[in-house]
Design a protein around this nucleic acid. Sequence first.
DNA 1: TTGGATGCAAAGATTTTGCAGTTTT
DNA 2: AAAACTGCAAAATCTTTGCATCCAA
Lengths: 148, 148
Amino acid sequence: MGSHWEDSLRSHGHRLTPQRRAVLRVLCDAGGHCTLAEIQERLRNRFPEIPLPTVYRNLRCLVDAGLAAQTDLGSGAHVYEFVADKHHHHLVCLRCQHVIDLPDAFLDPLRETLKQQFHFVPCMEHFALFGICPSCSGEPRPAEKGTA
Amino acid sequence: MGSHWEDSLRSHGHRLTPQRRAVLRVLCDAGGHCTLAEIQERLRNRFPEIPLPTVYRNLRCLVDAGLAAQTDLGSGAHVYEFVADKHHHHLVCLRCQHVIDLPDAFLDPLRETLKQQFHFVPCMEHFALFGICPSCSGEPRPAEKGTA
DNA sequence: TTGGATGCAAAGATTTTGCAGTTTT
DNA sequence: AAAACTGCAAAATCTTTGCATCCAA
């Protein structure tokens, strides 16, 4: 049935497999940052021997579908995070006033940098960034495959 | 003599070697992002066969001394950038009003993410972030909560 | 049926460390 | 002289791809 995330996956040409559902579930339940290996570990209940490449490829699909965000916090391995569309910020175009939603997870690298380098804990609850949107900059839209 | 960057290095326990000066020079002249391999390449004039580990360790020293910033733009390899103290932003403490300078380079990962994921080109000339500074976060004061 | 997904295996790419000899301070 | 750095070599990590088989749509 058309859950929001199911539609997101399908509209990007991805299928719904048990492994993929499980990865998303794990990411969602974790509620924070997870490395590839951590996700694999948390998956052991349902898929005791799931290979890392499978987790890896599923994460790519989730990121592609906008359900997960991949970032580098300087720990040597990338971390993944569930992208809920609850908390979000705004990218405001200076020319056409168009507003793009920016999921909160995309601010994590900056958060982490400030914490590690400056020991500064930013409050970024209400965040707005101004700039030029894709339409106004004349740049080609990002390649969206399978979009009706 | 005592250039600002020389002091920065020495005060962090690092020494000034020809290779280190050259790495900093390259990074400075490049004026943008460089991977480890790119820096090695640009170093070929003065050090035709400089090993990657040497470049790597020098970069770590420069980052440690605050002269360079390391970031991950999603290309698979980290990129390094000279940190000039000309353009900078402000981290403002919500409790004590203390202001910390944030070199512009630290916003690069966010810039790149917005460009790649949203095709949005942010204008972050005058940037201020509010939060809690290290001094204040060490002394938690429940009575006064930072209001965003 | 068709194209994507899984699992297994291996390769790629990048980062990181060890160590002996050398250089800066 | 002491501590840090270089250069060479190799290892440790993490990411990515190939391919035969299997499954979702």
